[in-house]
Amino acid sequence: MALTREHELHKRRQGRNIGVLVVLLAFVALVFGLTIAKMTTGDQLQGFDHTYRIEMDPGARTGGADE
């Protein structure tokens, strides 16, 4: 009987562990949501992919030459 009895301390630790789990999941969800929000509301982005693209060159677009 005594060997399997839950001590109050275990309940407290369990509660704390669940609390930390909920906080971490909420944080992950928030960062994910924030990423999506930033991607949908920000300016159009183009990554560098090792080929020259004229639309990514401000000098070429305005017709000016690089100094």
Partner: peptide, 10 residues
Amino acid sequence: HPVEALAAII
């Protein structure tokens, strides 16, 4: 954006 506002408040 509502998510940005929520994040800011948090």
